[in-house]
Amino acid sequence: MSAALVVGLLVAGGVFLLLRRGLLRIVLGFVLLGHAVNVLLVSAGGMQRRGAPLLGETEADVAADPLPQAFVLTAVVITFGITVYMLALARAGDPGATTGHPPARSDAPSLADGSDRDDADRDDATADRGRRTDASEGGAS
């Protein structure tokens, strides 16, 4: 019962973050969803037996199912790898971060600010960018 609530909580939080603006939130939402699936997998193995599957310390007849644990261990590490890669992409995907120039693509999502869903926002952004271009050129010369 508690495991189901934990899964639901993590899924709800992860989905909410995925749907918000900002690449960082999407990465964090992905992490939460990863947790949710891992909890589901382990609880699918059964929560009755909870001894650590270490044969030196636990008797085999009270040890928890090791197979879901092995799955989840793999999943945790892969989730981590993907998370790092997504963070790297989020960082590299913002051309302003690498070149100091305003982004070439007007709809490129950035870390803290997400999408181009709102036309009004986009217009504002374009205007902002125009100002910044002026400023940076002025600074360069």
């Binding site: 019962m1 495991a3 189901a4 609530l5 899964v7 639901g8 909580l9 993590l10 899924v11 709800a12 939080g13 989905v15 909410f16 749907l19 949710a36 589901l40 609880s43 699918a44 193995g45 059964g46 929560m47 009755q48 037996r49 199912d65 090791p66 197979l67 879901p68």
Partner: peptide, 26 residues
Amino acid sequence: LALGAGVAATLATLAFTGRRELSAVG
């Protein structure tokens, strides 16, 4: 949508877990 997904996930977890002994492979 997040709440809906959360409820669905909770129900699914309730439906899919807690009804069997240790797996044969385990």
